[in-house]
Design a protein around this nucleic acid. Structure first.
Length: 290
DNA sequence: CACTTGACCTGTCCGC
DNA sequence: TGCGGACAGGTCAAGT
């Protein structure tokens, strides 16, 4: 999915675009993408005003005036795209920014119509993602929110927190540990590879073998990579777009992800693609030794 | 309990 | 061109 930087970019876009709008109509034809019964949608979403947009880990929460929230998880291919009535969402002069054509399209799972005739589309090619309504106060009690790890970009997240969180995963490889949302929230396949390259740690290294210095470097790299990506509007590999349907540019700055066959910017060795924790994984065999 | 693997879906790309 | 298989940014459940 969309990892932390992508979800945060969508959150910021939606906060600017839909807060204050009133929901007039909702349509969804895929129960898996939006499991709440129609009566809940009518009672708690239709007629509600958007009061805010929050993010925790890779989950978006669109808060409503009804004390309910519309939660969204984009998983691998989800998109939340806002379209204003009559606006050119392709962006004049930047035709390549956009990945989405006319909406709705065949990947559209949910359409929310606001009372000014603007629309919010939830598109999801692979149907892994979902939106669902829940009382705002209950979100923090869900199993996921109870066990998810700390937000890595919060000021309160310190190197010691990473060390402490990793301490119960000593026999796991570091890549799998970084992908585990109960260790730290929001890291996925792209930023795990990028941060490990930055810290010069091989993804197959066991957590228990990492030195304090390596863990400190990893902490620094995680924050640097996530912050840079937010600054670049996230990574568009295939499907990801922001709330205006536009791509992010982090992939232009990626050091290893999807750069197999190219030379490492630090040592000129050829970047390799291997398999770790069941995921395609990118490493510099010279900078990151096992 | 810690850790790994398969399943959930659709689409695309690559080799035969 | 067609077809089968592997793979794709995430997370669970079920397995060892």
């Amino acid at each position: 999915m969309p990892e932390l930087p992508e979800v945060e970019t969508v959150r910021r876009g939606l906060a600017d675009l839909i807060v204050g709008k009133k929901v007039e109509d909702v349509s969804n034809d895929n129960p898996k993408s939006f499991p709440n019964p129609d009566e809940d949608v009518k009672q708690f979403l239709v007629g509600a005003t958007i009061t805010g947009v929050r993010r925790r880990a890779k989950v978006l929460m669109i808060d409503l005036s009804t004390a309910y929230s519309l939660m969204a998880h984009l998983k691998m291919t989800g998109q939340l795209v806002f379209v204003a009535p009559g606006k050119d969402r392709f962006g004049a002069g930047h035709p390549n920014d956009s990945l989405v054509g006319e909406l709705p399209d065949k990947s559209t799972r949910v359409v929310i119509t606001f009372n000014d005739n603007s629309h919010l589309y939830f598109n999801d090619q692979r149907k892994f993602g979902w939106v669902r309504l829940m009382p705002t106060e209950e979100i923090k009690n869900t199993p996921f929110m109870q066990k998810v790890g700390p937000e890595p970009l919060e000021d309160s997240f310190l190197p010691g927190n990473l060390v402490e969180r990793l301490s119960r995963k000593k026999k796991s490889n570091i890549k799998a540990a970084l992908l585990d949302q109960t260790v730290v929230a929001g890291i996925g396949n792209i930023y795990a590879d990028e941060a490990l390259w930055g810290a010069k740690i091989h993804p197959k290294r066991l957590v228990g073998s990492l030195t304090k210095q390596e863990l400190t470097n990893l902490y620094t790299e995680i924050r640097a990579v996530l912050n840079l990506s937010i600054q670049k509007g996230g990574s568009t590999n295939k499907n990801y777009v922001n709330a205006e349907g536009k791509r992010g540019s982090y992939m232009d700055f990626a050091r290893v992800f999807r750069r197999e066959g190219q030379s490492c910017s630090r040592c000129q060795s050829e970047i390799q693609k291997i398999r770790v924790a069941g995921r395609g994984t990118h490493v510099c065999p010279h900078c990151q030794v096992l």
